[in-house]
Design a binder for these strands. Structure first.
Length: 824
RNA sequence: GCCCAGGUGGCGGAAUGGUAGACGCGGCGGACUUAAAAUCCGCUUCCCGCAAGGGAGUGGGGGUUCAAAUCCCUUCCUGGGCACCA
């Protein structure tokens, strides 16, 4: 603990005692039990579940305290709120820790969960623990396997031999989404490639539907990130003639978004990994091509990306024919063309593509302008011209605007059967195989006779053996476990072998929100009725780091399950709030970085309510910020003032002369505060909601000094303050609720309403400006007319001082705000 | 390189065309105390001024407007995302 602040506040109450007391009461009374038959309208408020890494740290508090406050707020608005918690329990960290420590992932994970469950309770959260889910439990992951089989049956899960991203440190393949700038997202090791048999989910089938983010009330930033990740581009697939090479395939398909430039294609580039490279390469070019391809394949993703400046390639010795103009152009291999995008073959138009331009310059290939820039003098280009223009050197299309040329050439290509319009996506199918131990076994059996056989549903779950060796070898640890691998074929009963890869843990989190509705259901992944009752999630909260992994996968699952007839809605998360992170030393807190701040010491000193509120008060939740405890004492001080304020004996006010102005002022403040706090929490502005409550308590203090009100008015104001505070500080508000003579529980109350008429001001400060500069302020009634306001302003001392001797040219009047006198 | 978010007192931040700096931290002064802590009260953007008051001020420059932290252009800086996608 770094500060002097922590030792200063002396508590007037014992936070730990009252907090523990109420948490026990809430639990024993099952206050937060969520019932499906509750008649109130449902509200599903879901925070992303945590990975059980060890201990709950201050970053977890920052994530879960505001979402708990929101859930409590919705409950007090009259909803039947589902606010569940669970653990994303499979995954690499536990396995890696096990390799180092020898402690089995099952044990470390369950120990961590036990500890974290207690710590999450200690925050004063309203989770219904009867609905907890743990994804590493067979009761959960058997449904991963079941869902996998449904997707498999529907053709949405398939196995393919393909180059995969390989992390040499984690010894497993990675999905595209898990490769960050060529590095493994988990350990920052440069990613290499391996050709392997891998299981994929056909997410690309839903690319277009996933692109439709119009129904989502999500931050624009996340919607843009998903849109860019999917990366739709419309263009034309067109064949180039390679019949001169006597191959069976007479055609050679390229993809372009610029069919208007096809007459400028002066060469064609093929990706080094492309299977046709081998067949096309001329004998005399073989050595050079093989050397180039070998070098390209050995490169890590990072090295390949870093070649951005220098584009390299080699000539294959082969040629193809551009069917539009009959031109014979050379075919080159270059690693700036990716096998994984489009067809892996590109028609190069150096005049109108900067990459092709640079490549052409380097290898002295011809550059032919076919879309003339406006006012082009016919001279050489210094860089590729990417804009629109007029078709030139384009045969029958010369003279057309290129935008029209684009359509007419595409029509021409389609009419001749050379190609067709199509759409390409940057999105790749989701690679879900992992060569690791601590995950869901993929329920497939390989039989020499029957081939790929799904494990029959009645044999699920395929249990993860607890006695496997999990040292990393590059093969799945399960492959070494004879008892697991060797199995009878479910079809023909001959000896067969199990699939030994496990699933990406993002499979678990792609449907966990469905399981919370019926966490103990044993006839399927979820009870269809319950799932329908609670879903979709009304409000999801979590960090931006999941913008293109979890959030995209979960949307895909929802759509796929809908098409399988298991769900009847299209989107899993209607509203998403993307919170910021508490960082320490400008890095996100995590156990692996060793920069975690433990909340325990703070909690033991100032209590959970103060820590919750302090984190919410730091700033806007979506902004996050560097951890500092410098202000936590201020929150503790305020909580103590609330404690004292709420318990004053208001009878001291009775019998004194009453002041109608004071009463009205207080009632107005009460109603304004309710309005502010409610609208702030609705908009996730917990910081200003707390500021409004602080102002309110300051006002109450002044009212107390001023007297003039009776105990009824005072007690009413205190009651409303406690109700507004309850979502954010659940313990102290419960205790004070009881101490002010109310029946258990404050968390079963509804939020106070505000009356706009009572919140309305009677007077306001009329601002007097001269030439836009503040010169006076005058208290005036809200009923003031425009003429009166103008006169009051013109006659004010502040204005007079600055307009004397000048001519008043204009007077601007803004009702309820100001008068601006324009004078010169 | 492209896209997004942001830049406001000593600090966290408030204000989304109309009183810049709410609320809190820190600091200063005072009350209480033998003293300290805690607590309570007051002050606290900067500059000039004893004061009244005046001037400057929301990264920099320019613009629109009676009026700009807020809108527009431009530029710098910070954070995040994407990046040979044909």
């Amino acid at each position: 603990m770094s500060t002097t602040a922590m030792r200063t506040t002396e508590f007037r109450y014992r936070p730990n005692e009252i907090e523990a007391k109420w948490r026990e009461r809430w639990a024993s009374d099952k206050l937060y039990e969520v019932r499906d038959d509750d008649p109130r309208p449902k509200w599903y408020e879901l925070p992303m579940y945590p990975y059980p890494s060890g201990d709950i740290h201050i970053g977890h508090w920052y994530m879960y305290a505001p979402s708990d406050a929101r859930a409590r707020f919705m409950r007090m608005k009259g909803y039947n709120v589902l606010h569940p918690m669970g653990f994303d329990a499979f995954g690499l960290p536990a396995e890696n820790a096990a390799i180092r420590s020898g402690i089995h992932p099952l044990k470390s994970t369950m120990d961590n969960i036990d500890r974290m469950r207690g710590q999450l309770r200690a925050m004063g959260t309203m989770y219904d623990w009867d609905r907890e889910i743990v994804t590493s439990a067979p009761e959960y992951y058997r449904w991963n396997q079941w869902l996998f089989l449904q997707l498999h049956k529907a053709g949405l899960a398939y196995r393919a031999y393909a180059p995969a991203n390989w992390c040499p440190s984690c010894n497993t393949v990675l999905a595209n989404e898990q490769v960050i700038e060529g590095l493994c997202e988990r350990c920052d090791t440069p990613v290499t490639h391996r050709d392997m048999n891998q299981w994929f989910f056909r997410i690309t089938k839903y690319a277009d539907e996933l692109l439709d983010v119009s129904k989502l009330e999500w931050p624009e930033k996340i919607r843009i990130m998903q849109t860019n990740w999917i990366g739709r581009s419309a263009g034309v697939e067109i064949e180039f003639d390679i019949s001169e090479h006597g191959l069976e395939d007479k055609a050679f398909t390229t993809f372009t978004t610029r069919i208007d430039t096809i007459y400028g294609a002066t060469f064609v580039v093929i990706a080094p990994e492309h299977p046709l490279v081998e067949k096309l390469t001329a004998p005399e070019r073989r050595d050079e091509v093989n050397a180039y391809v070998g070098q390209a394949r050995r490169q890590t993703e990072v090295e390949r990306l870093s070649t951005e400046k220098e584009k390299t390639g080699v000539f294959t010795g082969a040629y193809c024919v551009n069917r539009l103009n009959g031109e014979r152009v050379p075919i080159l291999v270059a690693d700036y063309v990716l096998l994984t995008y489009g067809t892996g073959v590109v028609m190069a138009v150096p005049a109108h593509d900067q990459r092709d331009f640079e490549f052409a310059e380097r290898y002295a290939l011809p550059i032919k302008v076919v879309v003339a820039p406006p006012e082009w003098d016919g001279g050489e280009l210094k860089e590729a011209y990417l804009g629109e223009g007029t078709q030139v050197n384009s045969g029958q299309f010369d003279g057309l605007p290129s935008s029209e040329g684009m359509e007419r050439i595409a029509d021409h290509v389609e009419a001749n059967g050379w190609g067709h319009r199509t759409v390409n996506y940057r999105l790749r199918d989701w690679l879900i195989s992992r060569q690791r131990y601590w995950g869901t076994p993929i329920p497939i059996i390989y039989c020499d006779e029957c081939g790929e056989v799904p494990v029959p549903q009645e044999d699920l779950p395929v249990l993860l053996p607890e006695d496997a060796e999990f040292l990393p070898t590059g093969d799945s640890p399960l492959a070494l476990h004879e008892g697991f691998v060797n199995v009878e074929c479910p079809n023909c009963s001959r000896p067969a072998r199990r699939e030994t890869d496990t699933m990406d843990t993002f499979v678990d989190s792609s449907w966990y929100f469905l399981r919370y509705a019926s966490p103990q259901y044993s006839d399927g992944p979820f009870d269809p009725q319950a799932a329908k009752q609670w879903n979709p999630v009304d409000q999801y909260t979590g960090g931006v780091e999941h913008a293109v992994m979890h959030l995209l996968y979960a949307r895909f699952f929802t759509k796929a399950l809908r098409d399988l007839g298991l769900l009847d809605f299209d989107e899993p998360f209607i509203r998403l709030f993307s919170q910021g992170h508490i960082i320490a030393g400008s890095q996100k807190m995590s156990k692996s970085r060793g920069n975690v701040v433990a909340p325990d010491e703070y909690v033991s000193k100032v209590g959970a309510d103060v820590v919750r509120c302090y984190l919410m008060f730091l700033g806007p939740w979506d902004q996050g910020g560097e951890w500092s405890d410098s202000g936590i004492n201020g929150m503790a001080r305020w909580m103590n003032r609330v404690w004292e304020l709420a318990q004053r004996d208001a009878r001291a006010l009775d019998g004194l002369p009453q002041d109608t102005d004071a009463l009205r002022d207080m009632s107005r403040t009460v109603h304004k505060t309710i309005r502010r706090v409610v609208s702030d929490i609705e908009r996730f502005k917990f910081n200003t909601a707390l500021a409004a409550l602080m102002e309110f308590s300051n006002t109450l203090n002044r009212v107390w000094e001023r007297k003039g009100i009776d105990s009824g008015g005072w007690n009413d104001a205190v009651e409303k303050m406690l109700l507004l505070l309850a979502p954010m500080a659940p313990h102290i508000s419960e205790e004070l609720w009881e101490r002010t003579g109310h029946a258990f529980s404050i968390h079963d109350q509804t939020l106070p309403q505000w009356d706009p008429a009572l919140a309305a001001d009677e007077v306001f400060t009329l601002v007097v400006q001269v030439n836009g500069r503040l010169r006076d302020r005058i208290e005036v009634p809200v009923s003031i007319t425009e003429e009166e306001a103008r006169n009051v302003a013109l006659e004010s001392a502040g204005a007079q001082q600055h307009i004397s001797g000048k001519a008043v040219a204009r007077v601007i009047y803004v009702p309820g705000k100001l008068v601006n006198i324009v004078a010169s």
